[in-house]
Amino acid sequence: MSMQAALPVALIPGNSFIHKVNPITKIVWVIGYIVLAFSTQNIYILYGMALFAFLLAPLAGVTKPLLKGALILVPIGSSLLALQIIAPAVEQPWTPVASLGGFTIYGDGLYYGLVLLGRIVASLLIALVMVMTTHPSDLFTSLAKLKMPYTLNFMLAMTLQLIPVFQREVGIIMSAQKSRGMKGSGFAAVLPSFVPVFVGAIERVQQLSISLESRGFGSDGMKTSFRQVRSRPSDWIIGIVGAAIFIGLSIISIMKGLWSLAHVIVFPGTFVLWLFIIAAATFAGVIIVTLIYAFKK
């Protein structure tokens, strides 16, 4: 039983090049990704960033958990595209390209839907790659070097460290309840599973805070770290090159009015119509499957 596999938002141990990259360099890239993603409406740049982040996964040996983590994009992406195609979140006039029943299908709605989705996909993938390849303690040490407030830094590191602990706890609790004949899924499983998880989480946090205070947490003075993180020349090069690319592209993009290609890329009406049908059907399917599981005993 691997809850690690069910909720893959934690460090996947490894010895790849990406695992060895300095956490500060990774933070530079994640921040750069987010800044650039929200500074441009150029879908080539957005999906290029997403593709690049995805290609890092096999290099780091985290493809499978990354894909599992990225599953959340299915309902988000399908609903976003379906809604944008029929009601674009940009100023009118919109360009109708087809109609379906009472719905008018807009080509520029698809473009802006793809922009919004591209921002989410690119940011999520790079953030997942970073979390899956960075030891929380290394992140803590690196952020401390960046003068991040100690308490805030500790909270972030602790949250990341507790994720696998809670994943394991969820696994044990599910086993305990299944042993009592509880159905493994469905609405009936929610209460027996989540009450012990939440109570356990609260108790654990209470104990942790007492334990921290009893060991002088919050006291003044310089803090040291057991784990040391080295900065190699390659880390500097990767960080500087990344920062230069992201800053450069962001500036160009802003100067070009967010570099939108909405008026350059014209999607055929049939293509937009079919994409709308597929997106709407996928989202409806997700909702139906969720409801079936929710009410199945």
């Binding site: 305990a176 309840q177 209460l191 599973s193 009450v195 012990p196």
Partner: peptide, 8 residues
């Protein structure tokens, strides 16, 4: 071992 894992 831990009753907290099953009581709800």
């Amino acid at each position: 071992q831990n009753p907290n894992h099953q009581l709800f």
